[in-house]
Design a protein around this nucleic acid. Sequence first.
DNA 1: TTGATCGGCGTACGGGTGTACGTCATTATT
DNA 2: AATAATGACGTACACCCGTACGCCGATCAA
Lengths: 129, 129
Amino acid sequence: MGERPGLSKGELEVARIVWDLKSATVRQVHERFPAERGVDFATVQTYLRRLETKGYLKGRMEGRTRIYSPRVQPRTVIRETINDLVDRLFGGEALPLVRHLIEDRGISAEDLTTLKELIDRLEGERRND
Amino acid sequence: MGERPGLSKGELEVARIVWDLKSATVRQVHERFPAERGVDFATVQTYLRRLETKGYLKGRMEGRTRIYSPRVQPRTVIRETINDLVDRLFGGEALPLVRHLIEDRGISAEDLTTLKELIDRLEGERRND
DNA sequence: TTGATCGGCGTACGGGTGTACGTCATTATT
DNA sequence: AATAATGACGTACACCCGTACGCCGATCAA
């Protein structure tokens, strides 16, 4: 399907904000942007424009304001991004990455519990195949 | 500490090969490169040169062949890369990424078992803090 | 009404990135 | 000896990316 051009890190970040908001103007995205980074309004505008050009967002005019919304499912983009990362950084194996995340990142006790439940559920599902 | 310039995806991929081999020539890296991508020897050479310039690899001459080896620990680079990804794509939360990996990627039954052990061990360690 | 603000749109520009060619010297092959 | 392969190194070049300025028209505030 859609062989869109890939997204850069910055573009990805902007896209995520739009996904979160479901639909957003330049200003809204700009406001949600990590303030300490002090990025210009016009910069965000350029990001959004490019995301539309690349086919990841669609934009429509409402009055004299442009509203951007997702054209590609976040899940899809995330999957592609992670796949790429896993391929390049771990030769295609997901487990090392999971291991790294669990060991090296702050995963809270509750999260660990959640995780175990998740795994149990998955194992259950598989037994029923 | 070392505020090295960041690595691109391609550079990361090449670096990983060197980490795996511990130490490698251009040709060795080129051979390990996913063949279907058909990338040129000279391209790999450029990658390695840049990785050295950026401070991620060190190179020494052995005879008339250059040998590259890591100058920065893989673990460090991986951590930085993942942190960046998690920040931009999941607003800094690691769990959603783990969830995605477990649900959306092929994780085998054995892997799931391994994972559970890992979690149990971690929980054990934490109780003893 | 007139200045300030908002927002779209076109444009820019330096540095990064992917990809590679060409040159020159050193081996290896025939 | 003549030729092919190897490898370092310099150079190139188009496209991408981060970052933004400037102009213009619409709208808001005084």
